[in-house]
Design a protein around this nucleic acid. Structure first.
Lengths: 225, 225
DNA sequence: TAATCGTTCAAGTGTTTAATTGAATGATAA
DNA sequence: TTATCATTCAATTAAACACTTGAACGATTA
């Protein structure tokens, strides 16, 4: 081009920034990042949870590593990956927010998740914390049982979407239910809220998910070892 | 995996988020976004300032439009593009921050801009505002003259890197100089600070650039019409 | 109405990417 | 050591992308 130096530092910087954006420009890699937001994971676990083959997942992880978003360490035979920077969570969240604000398609999909009904405003984490202290709320963790076991909001019940009916008897009809899942990219909480509301229950979604709750420094109950 | 959008709503959502990230995954498009952060622009102006051909620039703009990051309107013969959402600025800034924190290469390039010297901490916008009120600082706008004319921080001098020596006599040696340019993606301020410091002057960089200053609601002096 | 100008489209070329398969690595356990 | 297991590499195919060129469009002006 017409820039003064053949290797302008500015172009080099833009190249690096673009590398990070490119790492986030594939649904598969966003899915991996969402998993890593829950905590560090081995390749096989990531592959299983994202529905990718192990080899393919490994390739995507290499790309994420080149972009600096994840790092890895060895633990025996396994290679464990993790997010290298908590700010990556903020970046993913902002990416989602910008997409929601500017892409009509996103609005449409989210509306579809709520069964066409108007979804209520989510509950902020601060609100949930105060209401938990009062005991004026039932918290529902909509993630798979193993993720619940690895850590959850103290006092939360656990049920996947498929098991939702089984815990209905435990939900007092006049107490509001707050559902959460993995985080802003996870749609379980959206779907659970829609399902509960069609059953006449008063349910809302927690803003963000467990990683955001943890990042705020709020208490998380871990499984006893 | 499936390229056809909505098998599962979750996959469809990730696809949309990835679309936004993909739009930011090219140096050319980041360069265009940086220009649009200054204000709305016609295609030809964007092409000239980014060093792209008009046709190529137009293609990139189509992609940015598909991702929802920019919108356009017609003004006579010209089509004027602008950022559709101020949050895009935040997203670009966070992308840069994450890249700087996690890619050693970025650190290296930035160090190169400062001539190997340790660069001083940038001045926050709040600090500059109070020190401007005191008159205890000289502000230097390092952008091209036409961009300076279109709006700048009140009281700022203007000089490009090439013209820096011409304004040296106007800089009091015992008053700190604060240099700014287009924003966090622009390297002019970095380079100007390095150049001034080798001349023995006390210079620092403003955090962010004019778009960020404006976004904070701080005063900007516009050219009289 | 026709001519003009800025912008966009369509087609072609060379490069990069995602995903698959099967083989190669590297650490552990027998 | 050898066998085993999780992970990565290498080679392949099909798809997507960046950029160029020249033509087409749409609003303005002559």
């Amino acid at each position: 081009m017409s820039t003064s130096a053949s290797f302008s530092p500015k172009a080099a910087l833009l190249e690096e920034y673009a590398l990070v954006a490119r790492a986030m420009s594939s649904p598969a890699r966003l899915s991996i990042l969402e998993q890593l937001a829950q905590g560090e994971r081995a390749v096989e676990a990531l592959a299983e949870r994202t529905g990718l083959t192990v080899a393919n997942c490994s390739q995507h992880l290499q790309q994420l590593r080149r972009s600096g978003l994840v790092t890895s360490r060895r633990d025996g035979k396994a290679v464990i990956y993790r997010l290298s920077d908590p700010k990556t969570l903020d970046l993913m969240d902002l990416l989602r927010i910008v997409a929601e604000r500017n892409l009509a398609q996103v609005e449409r999909i989210l509306r579809g998740l709520s069964g066409g009904e108007e979804a209520p405003e989510p509950v902020s984490r601060a609100d949930l914390a105060t209401r938990l202290a009062e005991g004026s709320v039932t918290v529902l963790d909509v993630r798979p049982a193993d993720e619940y076991a690895a850590g959850h909001i103290p006092g939360a019940l656990n049920a996947t979407l498929a098991d939702l009916d089984k815990i209905l008897p435990m939900l007092a009809p006049n107490t509001e239910i707050v559902a959460y899942c993995r985080g802003p990219y996870c749609v379980y909480a959206h779907q659970a809220v829609a399902a509960l509301r069609t059953r006449g229950l008063n349910a809302r979604r927690l803003e963000g998910g467990l990683p955001e709750w943890r990042k705020d420094g709020r208490p998380v109950l871990m499984a006893s070892p």
